[in-house]
């Protein structure tokens, strides 16, 4: 198999996951495209470091790095309101939302409003369904930190002022 075919077979199947992660981290559809393109360039450069299997976590690690680099470079620019961005985007590109067409955007806004360390573990766990071990590898944190950070992220979501507008079917909340 040629290098190109090999890359396409192993890495490109995870392009959606890559875009989703970049989209949630940068909170902007255009930035996410730029980030994923940059991640592909890096993935091509480091393709030989990919061992058998694990291409998704490997590629998402690269995407995560590229996302953080992007965020760092554009730190001063992003004074935007995360909630507004998510809502506007959902209206303007309905075709890109798959499987999870929901009426409530509140939860999406709450996730987007989370700080990055909490936002990324929620996205990797609940949307990409990575195992704790895979999350630990992608986010470069110990597994114990994955567990505690997820617990904290979930608690933050449940306490989110955005969600209190929704009919409460959760337990009282504050612990």
């Amino acid at each position: 198999m040629t290098d190109r075919a090999s890359f396409e077979a192993q890495v490109l199947p995870h392009l959606d996951a890559a875009y989703n992660l970049a989209r949630w981290l940068t909170r902007d559809p255009h930035d996410a495209e730029d980030v994923v393109q940059e991640a592909c360039i890096r993935a091509l450069r480091y393709f030989q470091s990919l061992r058998e299997g694990g291409a998704r976590a490997w590629f998402l690690t690269i995407v995560r790095h590229a996302s953080y680099d992007w965020i760092e470079r554009h730190r001063d620019r992003d004074g935007g309101d995360a909630e507004v961005e998510v809502a506007a985007d959902a209206e303007s590109e309905p075709a890109q939302i798959v499987e999870r067409r929901g009426d409530s955007r509140a939860l999406a806004q709450a996730i987007a409003a989370l700080e990055l360390p909490y936002r990324e573990v929620i996205v990797l766990r609940e949307l990409e369904e990575l195992s704790y071990k895979e999350i630990a590898n992608v986010a470069a944190i110990p597994i114990g930190t994955v567990m505690s950070r997820l617990a904290r992220a979930r608690a933050l979501l449940r306490q989110s002022p955005v969600l209190h507008a929704i009919a409460p079917r959760r337990s009282g909340g504050e612990r």
Binding site: E99, L107, E126, L127
Partner: peptide, 19 residues
């Protein structure tokens, strides 16, 4: 609720073309 309500985005055609 997250899995039911929250968008999981897919790569748009413009991104696929760039890749």
């Amino acid at each position: 609720e997250i899995r039911a309500q929250v968008p999981r985005y897919v790569a748009p055609p413009s991104l696929r073309a760039r890749v």
